[in-house]
Amino acid sequence: MKARFSINSRNLPTLFTLGLFVIMFAVGSLSFPGFLSPQNFLNLFIDNSYLLILGVGMTFVIISGGIDLSVGSVLAFSTMLSSSLLEKSHWDPLLVIPVVLLAGVALGLFMGYIIQAFDLPPFIITLAGLYLARGLCYVVSIDTIGISNQFWQDAAHAQWNVIGQNFISPSVVIGAVVVIAGVFISRSTKFGRTVYAIGGNEQSAILMGLPVARTKVMIYGLSGFCSALAGIVFTFYTLSGYALNGKGMEMDAIATVVIGGTLLTGGVGGVFGTVFGVLVYGTIQILIVFQGTLNSWWTRIAIGFLVFLFCLLQRVFESRKVGKAKKPEAKVPAKSPS
């Protein structure tokens, strides 16, 4: 009995988010006619796939005990870079995509290297990355760059039918692939498990002989990759590059990860949770749209409230767990015995 509870307890925050999503969707369905439809559900993924992709990268960063504030700016930079390469330099789309992704990875690895090599707080270094990438956007162009490239146009307008007349977009497929890859990496690769170990106790991870330094750098590289990919997906919506894209989006990404049950202190959480975090986020948005009279800023208020709630829940959850474990406080830092 005790054992069963405990296995579940690891997934408890995620289950809570799932429950929250189901309740919110049910409330919407009961309150608004037309809310409960397969397409409305699929729209959640269509409208938020870029956020989902950012969230997957951010999940790894946060599980490792770090934070990446640069993701919104890197997303903006990759919209600028791809639109500029496509429209001004007339590059082939199949070349643009890898170049943009590489740029994101390079920036992420660079930040990761600085964080690791000089033992600097991720908060500050990725804040610097935030400014750097945002500034680079204006180096590419001050004005909006519209994208008329055929490949992009196709990607933007394609609708693939699933379940009857309901459709998804290519972005959804990309998002799904990223989620599946994220789940696989986090659960079944040495890299993924090392990320958890670092988040649990970095010093122990080093003493256990894990490649902590390399992994930490790679985590930010992975987040950079996700940011760049999210930028490309973002241009599938907007068909333009604009230097002010994704302002404050790093906070949305962090919020969805936290709502998804990943601990900001690191070590606990997962990619699946983030998927539900994004779904909750999206549902709040469409609830407000359906409601009609509320300003869209209410989304922010609702998200803010949820983040508070989840942090509180995590604390309650943690203290319960500590209470269960056998008296860790007996290990008083008795310092060097006399």
């Binding site: 106790n201 122990s204 003493l207 290990k331």
Partner: peptide, 9 residues
């Protein structure tokens, strides 16, 4: 004495 493991794993 202080166990060097990861409690979260």
């Amino acid at each position: 004495q202080e166990v060097n493991l990861c409690l979260n794993l």
